[in-house]
Design a protein around this nucleic acid. Sequence first.
DNA 1: TTAGATTGTTAGCACTAACTAACATTATGA
DNA 2: TCATAATGTTAGTTAGTGCTAACAATCTAA
Lengths: 193, 193
Amino acid sequence: MNTLTLDNKSKLMLAAIDLMAEKGYKGVSTKEIAAAAGVSEMTLFRNFGSKKSLLEQAVERYHYSLEMETLFEENIKWDLRLDLLMICQMYHEIMQRNRKLFIIVLSDNELADIRGKADKHPRKLLKLLTDYFNEMQSKNKMLSTDAETQAITFMWLNYGAFISQLFGASISNISLQNVMNSSIELFVRGLAP
Amino acid sequence: MNTLTLDNKSKLMLAAIDLMAEKGYKGVSTKEIAAAAGVSEMTLFRNFGSKKSLLEQAVERYHYSLEMETLFEENIKWDLRLDLLMICQMYHEIMQRNRKLFIIVLSDNELADIRGKADKHPRKLLKLLTDYFNEMQSKNKMLSTDAETQAITFMWLNYGAFISQLFGASISNISLQNVMNSSIELFVRGLAP
DNA sequence: TTAGATTGTTAGCACTAACTAACATTATGA
DNA sequence: TCATAATGTTAGTTAGTGCTAACAATCTAA
């Protein structure tokens, strides 16, 4: 992204995201954000009104979102392995793109109102996954079990993987891709009819 | 715990843990901590020297720890279901007792040096679990697979469950216990020889 | 070229925070 | 009972933070 072509609002929002992901919302001053964006502190307050409003508008502008329903409809093949792999990849793509915003709003309870916006995806995904598991059972392609419980299990596993990498030091050298492939095999074997 | 019998240092450390778990390290002033502990701010600085030293000593004093090796040695029954259930319960007990300290040091990168102390348990558990899976394969009680990858999978699932509950709003009404029971069944079926 | 928009600079307000000094008061243990 | 330790109170230092006002400078579009 060529900063030469960005207007000041964009520069300020991106600078805020970068610095706050690293140091936390309270650990960064508006002076630092303005300096990193290469504009004056006055410009920050003229464009956004307040520090919190800057973050709110940054979340609005840069929070990555996609239509999960459409993705499900267009890509589900009713094969447990292929489908879980697709869902897993979609999950980590969304979370990875949002990781800076995610860590900012997760780490500070004062941003709980902004954090509400980030709950959309997990809730939607839980519902889509639950419906998917129910349908797989109807098609006798999966053993009979509580679909929502399996959906939560899958999501917690992915969430644990994501959070492990978000907050620093890894405790193992095995790659995310390898672990996800292996755990999907676990689901496939464990849920075989 | 009867606060009437606590000395000032203990009162200050517990007040700091409670307030910082709720508002974050930077979101709490030494004035607030002292007030919550019922002592003067001067007393806080006389006993601890600095705000950060107060937290460091609180972690030292109140971080829950146990000998996982001993627990493994004394409780492993070489039955996958029973063993994973025991390990799961041990994990959540440790994490639950440390949850306030965990959320404090996790949320603020300025405390990364203190956070190092909290990595002990996950690393130790990863090793114990990997050894356990290797031994189960040797005993032909589990299918042949990469033990460390399975250990990481189990830990990420538990970590996802823990973090989901640590940072607020649940996305489902299904209890942790139910999900853990179900996911252990998944492991048992998925890893059956 | 010029009017209007936008930004930069300087100075400042109001307040908070971590922390310290000095003296008074209270608690504690010998 | 009393010396010492610990704490409370008052006042303060140093530094920083979010934010604003007023005026100068620069940019942009007509």
